[in-house]
Design a protein around this nucleic acid. Structure first.
Lengths: 198, 198
DNA sequence: TGACACATACCGACCGGTTTGTATGATGAG
DNA sequence: CTCATCATACAAACCGGTCGGTATGTGTCA
């Protein structure tokens, strides 16, 4: 048995992410995570002081990079945010794996579950969410300067709403288990983006 | 100690609703519900066969009536759905109790938590959600006939999106703990409703 | 009307199982 | 050798759920 602590830690993080994505944080079982990975309590509590630290590490080291790659990066430098976001919506609508639709957005899942229960979780999740909103808002502002976006709208409020509506679409579709409904909902959000032009 | 089984049952339902609203269904503790009500295991398991039945009863006998009174009834007979919904948004924006904002929508909370975990819960919650969407869609159709609503939009898709976006607004605001952000988000949804006119 | 029979409503101790977390022991790498 | 890395065994708390017992109400029949 070779000793590869970094890989062990990463294995735990990914298994924890999957477990939390399916069952939520509170119902996530450390025993299941361990049996999934073939590791033991000793390994887990060597790398993480407690369950909460593991959960927060999942947020910061798994969910944040995922979200950054998929949602932040395309918006980071564009000066045509509406076109960029339309493309992102189409990319999301192309999703065919029903599991992805059924499990929903990991960030939203955790926010809904944990924000009333644990203040530290709430703050950490909220920071990630606010970073997302700020990224959208900054892109909208650049869009106003480039002339793509209507100059009279308030970037902050609009960005908050766009992200909220997107999470809402994902959340509701997760419940219906209907990919067509999911696409229809995203299309309506696209309709809203159209109204932000010029 | 007087015997009032109906009241006992109702007491359990309301305590269970509060507990579930705060902690979710899976993390809801029967012991806490009992200590809150001053009742015991015997009373609980006399009125409900198990925890799941209690949870489903909360959905049907507490959450559904609440939602029906607040969201279904105003739309039931109106032929100006946009005006009615704008009024509903303003009513929601007038909320000042931070707890209500912090705890979010009971229906959405349960959908996000339970739909990947338990199929029976998912179906029951989805039925309530679909009833809501259908109510909105029917109102939009009447609005098209009365001339308030643009005739080219698809009521079903639009209704699904409106409800999703509303749940999204509530869900995100629950995380930020910010009533102004909540109001700003609702205002953006109102902006979207404006684009549905004639 | 009074008394017995029975059903309903509720109590609270107890159960097996699972939870997170700890304390100690083994093992391999530098 | 030494310490990081993990395994194992165990502890304490809590979970949902069961069960025997009790108190209260209610219908029935004398």
């Amino acid at each position: 048995m070779t000793r590869t602590p970094d890989l062990t830690r990463q294995t735990l993080l990914e298994a924890a992410f999957a477990e939390i994505h399916r069952n939520g944080y509170q119902a996530a079982s450390l025993s299941r995570i361990l049996s999934d990975t073939g590791l033991t309590k000793g390994a887990l509590y060597h790398h993480f002081p407690d369950k909460k630290a593991l959960g927060l590490a999942v947020v910061e080291e798994v969910i944040r990079p995922q979200l950054a790659a998929m949602m932040f990066e395309p918006l980071r430098s564009t000066d045509r945010p509406l076109a960029t976001m339309q493309a992102m919506l189409e990319a999301k609508a192309a999703e065919t794996d029903p599991w992805v639709v059924a499990l929903g957005c990991p960030l939203n899942n955790l926010m809904q579950e944990m924000s009333p229960v644990d203040e530290i979780f709430r703050l950490q999740l909220n920071q990630l969410f606010e970073d997302w909103v700020a990224t959208v808002a900054a892109a909208l502002t650049r869009g106003q300067q480039s002339g793509e976006v209507a100059p009279d709208l308030v970037p902050d409020d609009t960005a908050f709403f766009v992200v909220s509506a997107l999470e809402g679409c994902i959340g509701m579709s997760k419940n219906t288990h209907s990919i067509p409904a999911y696409r229809g909902c995203l299309a309506q959000l696209g309709r809203f983006l159209e109204t932000l032009k010029r």
